[in-house]
């Protein structure tokens, strides 16, 4: 088979996103580097959601919980590093750190644990129940963060100095963009590997017909749970990156609007498509930025545009450009 249309689109998207910050610097518009970084990070978060939603058919309306937990992992560790006090976890104490590699590991671990806890209960349900129970769990973490005074409550937590990666000066925007971009590519690779694996096949099969999967001896619950945990881990990682981009974490990262926005990003780009979430994130950020600059009523037009996509442009941007999915 020659290169499919979707592959061509994917390569183009990858190049556009990569070229954008460099072009911005050439033109003397450094702000667009930040914008491109935001696209890469939200894209990464949506890749995580796409794993659960696109492959597993698990419509999680609570992914903000993982996003926020990743963000808080970065914020809390950085604040302890800054204050020079270890983080007391009861059984053992964890020293604060400003090393991104450590922060990422903790964020991924925390996201995975939370996803396991939420998944074990939520995956007993399906359909609308699943949507609503994931939403409820995210709300629970949201209220917890708001009323937990140790880390700023609703005021959030500032990261005074962006965390560091050995050998790279992350304070320079283009470097930080490249770090995020590399992680995005890694996550996409993981997504592609999972999709092509036996596990991925079982996951997609369980989306289409749980009974049939169960009848050939595969437990859909366990497959769904593993997918949900990996999904939560990826989204938590993006949350840590997002916190470092903004130098700030707050409960609004956990709000149900955030969960909604992540779903919007996945759907805008194309559910289940490899690069769909990235396309969606690029579109969403551009939309927010351009419309936000034009009119304070931008949410009205965002709503209209979203409605148009759902009603008339199923398959999202990638679907629109690449045509129907080969298997679906």
């Amino acid at each position: 088979m020659t290169i499919s249309r979707e592959t061509a689109i994917n390569v183009t998207l990858a190049l556009i996103l990569l070229a954008m910050p460099f072009l911005a610097l050439q033109l003397g518009k450094p702000f667009y580097v930040t914008l491109a970084t935001r696209m890469a990070i939200l894209g990464l978060a949506a890749v995580g959601l796409n794993l659960a939603l696109g492959l597993g058919g698990l419509v999680s309306f609570g992914h903000a919980a993982f996003f926020g937990v990743g963000g808080y992992a970065a914020g809390i560790l950085a604040s302890h590093a800054f204050a020079g006090q270890p983080l007391n976890l009861g059984l053992f104490a964890l020293p604060g750190t400003n090393q991104m590699l450590v922060v990422w590991s903790v964020a991924v671990l925390a996201g995975g644990l939370l996803a396991a806890a939420i998944g074990v209960i939520s995956l007993r349900t399906s359909g609308v129940y699943f949507i609503m129970i994931t939403l409820a769990f995210a709300q629970m973490t949201y209220y917890f963060a708001i009323s937990w005074p140790a880390y700023g409550g609703e005021d959030g937590l500032s990261i005074t100095i962006r965390n560091v990666v050995p050998g790279i000066n992350t304070l320079i925007p283009i470097n930080y963009f490249l770090v995020c971009y590399a992680l995005l590519l890694t996550a996409l690779l993981i997504f592609a590997l999972i999709r092509g694996s036996r596990f991925g096949a079982a996951l997609q099969a369980s989306r289409q017909n749980k009974l049939r999967v169960a009848s050939i001896g595969i437990a859909p619950f366990r497959i769904g749970l593993v997918a949900f945990i990996i999904s939560g881990m990826i989204t938590a990682l993006s949350g840590a990156l997002y916190a470092d981009l903004n130098r700030f974490v707050s409960p609004s990262m956990l709000s149900w609007h955030m969960s909604g926005e992540l779903i919007i990003i996945v759907v805008l780009g194309g559910v289940g498509r490899l690069w769909g979430p990235v396309a969606g994130a690029m579109l969403f950020v551009v939309f927010e930025f351009v419309l936000g600059g034009l009119t304070e009523r931008w949410q009205f037009f965002l709503g209209l545009a979203l409605l148009a996509v759902v009603l008339f442009a199923r398959g999202g941007l990638v679907g629109f450009l690449a045509g129907r999915m080969r298997h679906g």
């Binding site: 419509v59 359909g127 609308v128 779903i263 919007i264 009205f300 709503g303 009603l311």
Partner: peptide, 14 residues
Amino acid sequence: HLDQVLATFALILI
């Protein structure tokens, strides 16, 4: 349900 959630979320914004 995914499309329903999204379309009605859009209605909230509008």
